[in-house]
């Protein structure tokens, strides 16, 4: 519903605000699905930080945007075909909450059974992220750091600091 509103909006400020609300609704959805860690991240990053960053980017670029209502029939067709294909492929997925689904047969049982003895951390999400997949998390932190370097280079904040000193 919120997503439909976003598509129909022509004012960027309202789109940003609705984007925040959309993230908050997704966070609630994640809580319903018992994924509290993901919900936490979605609420903090999606609803909080990205809204603020969008607003500050909006403050830089200003209100000069030229949006004309045009109908892109090829685009609509592509989206419809893609959506129909995705929906058709869900028919092959295992039933919702099925304990025999392939995703529950791979490494998940091992984590659930052995992680407390091996890592000693009650929150299995933390033990998987920080211990079993520590290398992945190192990569994620590096990506975040690289993003900072890219933003600073693009916005010229590094050069500005050198001029002052």
């Amino acid at each position: 519903m919120t997503a439909l509103m976003i598509i129909n909006m022509r004012n960027i400020l309202s789109v940003i605000m609705l984007g925040g609300i959309y993230s908050l609704i997704s966070a609630i959805l994640f809580v319903v699905l018992d994924a509290v860690d993901v919900a936490f991240t979605e609420a903090a990053v999606g609803a909080g930080i990205s809204t603020v960053l969008f607003l500050s980017a909006f403050a830089i670029t200003g209100k000069h945007h030229d949006l004309k209502r045009r109908n892109h029939f090829p685009a609509l067709l592509a989206v419809l075909v893609m959506g129909a294909g995705l929906m058709y492929s869900t028919l092959d997925m295992p039933a919702w909450g099925d304990a025999e689904a392939p995703v529950h047969q791979h490494v998940a049982p091992r984590y659930l059974e052995d992680s407390y003895a091996e890592v000693g951390v009650p929150n299995i999400v933390t033990s998987v992220l920080a211990s079993y997949r520590g290398f992945d998390t190192l990569g994620e932190v590096t990506v975040v750091f690289t993003a900072l370097i890219a933003v600073l280079l693009l916005l010229g904040a590094i050069r500005e600091d050198e001029d002052q000193s």
Binding site: F40, T41, E140
Partner: peptide, 10 residues
């Protein structure tokens, strides 16, 4: 973060 939801990122 070890005991409840959360961790360094959040």
């Amino acid at each position: 973060g070890d005991y409840g939801p959360g961790g360094g990122f959040q």
